[in-house]
Design a protein around this nucleic acid. Structure first.
Lengths: 161, 161
DNA sequence: CCTATTTATATTTCTAGCCATATTATGGCT
DNA sequence: AGCCATAATATGGCTAGAAATATAAATAGG
């Protein structure tokens, strides 16, 4: 019995699997709240950034959300087609693409304001426990992001030699 | 200042976003450990189940991992093509498809055993903090899964009327 | 028995996410 | 000006994930 429950490969003993499952389930909960606005969850995250400040570059969005360019380019194009954002080259540096909300995109902020409340009702974790959870996951994200950045750097300098 | 930091739409104040980011980053960390085995992260999760017990049905895998059939069917077909698993109809109930590891898939367990250690080194959370994190995310998963099941049931009974 | 319902899986059509590679732009150097 | 290293974004090819719908097998009611 101790044998089974100490098995590091046992699904119940993993940390990463619950994170993975929670993320999938959360996106399923967000969907019915976001589709009336015409947004997916990742698109909603982009709007959260743009509601804080705009314009931002594709690269800035990527480092905020920890997403790759190959993910963002098509996602932002869909958002442009949907009329949520504009994409325009920075005249001062034409390598950069500036992303800004359209008036319609900006206007959605009002409707988005009620989403956190609706979710809080569903999640039904004690506020204190939510805080604890948030803090440890935020810490984990920092550790992971640093670790991945370190590995990327190691790889890049190896590629130069 | 208090205005800004109380904004529920601020990225820094969200619980779901760090979970989302952590999950993406974790999959990036897993990738270099799993590609030598020929597995993706979700495929690895399937193997974790099969290493505990086999055969299992597609539906059982789905409820363990909280994944949809539309996700699992192609995933399992890729795993079959890759020689990791077999898919066969249950002779007693031909609606069901039984999934079992091939000898090759079974053999990978040995190599997989070192993966949790390598990851623990990368994550570098204190063991106690890891435990706290795991417990709160597991709790969250239960709450979310129950909530979604409740909503699905409500929708299905509405469809009947 | 036979039809109606339920159950299990598959299919279709989207959107996302990653890696590796390519394209274009900038800046510094000579 | 011309060249080289670097930087920012785009592309292609793959795997995943979800909702809605379809197919086929099993079961229940009459």
């Amino acid at each position: 019995m101790a044998e089974l429950s100490d098995d590091p490969l046992r699904l119940d003993n993993q940390v990463c699997f619950p994170l993975y499952a929670a993320t999938n389930l959360l996106q399923r909960l967000y969907r019915p709240l976001l589709t009336p606005l015409g947004l997916t969850y990742s698109q909603y995250l982009v709007m959260l950034i743009l509601w804080e400040r705009a314009p931002v570059t594709v690269g800035e969005i990527g480092s905020c959300l920890h997403l790759d360019n190959g993910t963002l380019t098509p996602l932002l194009k869909r958002m442009e087609r949907g009329g949520f954002i504009t994409r325009s080259r920075d005249p001062h540096d034409e390598r950069r693409v500036l992303i800004a909300p359209t008036p319609h995109g900006q206007g959605l902020r009002e409707q988005a304001l009620k989403i956190p409340d609706e979710l809080a009702r569903d999640i039904a974790l004690a506020p204190e426990e939510t805080e604890t959870l948030r803090n440890s996951v935020v810490l984990l994200v920092h550790l992971l992001a640093d670790d991945i950045a370190r590995k990327k750097e190691a790889k890049d300098s190896a590629a130069v030699q």
